[in-house]
């Protein structure tokens, strides 16, 4: 799904909600996943100058999960540890997006190269 405008953020939230419900996530799990997606999609839009997200349903033995990969070709993040810290922001936000999103999911992975872009992958298991 493309992330090019504030309207796209709404569509991403809706899609993640539908997929989480299909996986029979509890209401709290759904809300956490949708909120994490909203934070990360906004980062892609505001800091990555737009990009896209890929949704993926996972099955590992008996457990099922939902994986979201946010990719942009923006400026990249020079210091990932700093970017993950609560309260740190390079923009005008509150600095809760990246660190907060990490707390809302089970697995969190970030790859970023200055000048090339950023990919954030999050997974939540049922």
């Amino acid at each position: 799904m493309p992330i090019r405008s504030a309207q796209d953020l709404v569509l991403v939230r809706q899609a993640v909600r539908t997929w989480s419900a299909e996986l029979k996530f509890s209401l709290v799990e759904q809300t956490k996943m949708v909120t994490a997606a909203s934070e990360l999609a906004r980062n892609t839009l505001d800091y990555g100058r737009g990009g896209h997200v890929t949704l993926e349903m996972l099955q590992e033995g008996l457990r099922k999960g939902l994986r979201l990969s946010f990719e942009d070709k923006g400026p990249g993040i020079p210091d990932i540890d700093l970017a993950l810290r609560d309260g740190y922001t390079s923009g005008g936000g509150m600095g809760l997006g990246l660190g907060g999103a990490r707390r809302l999911v089970n697995e969190f992975d970030i790859v970023s190269k200055v000048g090339e872009g950023t990919r954030v992958t999050v997974t939540r298991w049922k």
């Binding site: 209401l27 709290v28 907060g100 707390r103």
Partner: peptide, 14 residues
């Protein structure tokens, strides 16, 4: 505020 929203906000750090 819905309970699920409250739980999520606190974990988010807000």
């Amino acid at each position: 505020m819905q309970p699920a929203v409250a739980i999520t906000l606190v974990e988010l750090g807000m």
